[in-house]
């Protein structure tokens, strides 16, 4: 099996698992006794939040690896992951707001988890904006790597915010010392399928985005080479003073 064939399989796997996830959340999971059907938003909201953590953690690792190894492939991994992370953080916030409006009666509340998630979103938006300010790939990678490391401070802050501050957002429901707070096994299955599906979507997007970035870099390098003066261009034919 060639690398190209493997690359092509990820979108199919992501699509199939997403369909399975949609079926599970709509048909397999029961409605919640308190929230009713509104609970189904959680099967997308929670995996999207998990993916945002994963994506920014990969950006952190890619940034450190770039500064150590100085290979642009690590920078591409960090950048691609940050792009996907920003998208999924936005999705997490949007879905949370929709759920919050129906449950709490407001689109937004100054809860620590919500506020810090929004701040994390802007930190990585700044990371992406920074990448657009430099054409030189080495300079861009150096600068972005530093921000990729500094920005990672936000990840534990967001995750543990529900433990450190008492707010409206519920504390962790799955990874807890005394076991998951969700008792219904079908709800856990729906959540698990959602997490797996979103993770495969992430891998699929990463593979494609890194491939595209590699091609972009090659195109930029070719364009830069084209802008250079041709060897010997400075040399002109001697004017011998004769008429043509």
């Amino acid at each position: 099996m060639t690398a190209q064939t493997r690359t092509r399989r990820w979108p199919w796997a992501a699509s199939a698992l997403s369909l399975l996830g949609a079926f599970t959340l709509a048909m397999v999971s029961p409605a919640d006794s308190v929230q009713g059907d509104l609970v189904r938003i959680m099967y997308v909201h929670v995996p999207a939040a998990w993916l945002a953590y994963l994506a920014f953690a990969v950006t952190f690792v890619g940034s450190i690896a770039y500064l150590v190894a100085r290979r642009l492939s690590w920078d591409r991994i960090a950048a691609a992951s940050a792009e996907i992370g920003v998208y999924f953080t936005g999705l997490t916030i949007a879905l949370g707001m929709i759920w919050g409006k129906s449950t709490w009666g407001v689109w937004w509340t100054w809860d620590a988890r919500l506020t810090l998630t929004a701040i994390m979103f802007f930190v990585y938006l700044g990371y992406l904006a920074l990448r657009r300010t430099t054409d030189d790939p080495i300079a861009r990678a150096n600068r972005a790597a530093v921000l990729g490391i500094v920005g990672a401070v936000q990840i534990p802050l967001v995750h543990f915010s529900v433990v450190w501050w008492r707010g409206l957002h519920q504390p962790p429901s799955i990874i807890r010392p005394d076991g998951p707070a969700i008792q219904d096994s079908m709800m856990l299955v729906a959540l698990f399928v959602g997490v797996v599906a979103f993770t495969v979507v992430y891998v699929s997007l990463m593979v494609k985005r890194i491939e595209l970035m590699h091609l972009d870099d090659r195109l930029d390098a070719a364009e830069r080479a084209g802008d250079q003066p041709v060897a010997g261009e400075a040399v002109t034919a001697p004017n011998l003073g004769g008429s043509a």
Binding site: F122, A129, L130, R132, T133, T134, L147, V150, G151
Partner: peptide, 21 residues
Amino acid sequence: IVNSTSAGTALVPLLVAPLSV
């Protein structure tokens, strides 16, 4: 980080404000 970039110091508030929280 932003020194000598095309955005210059215009980018700084977006980077620093969230990090100073």
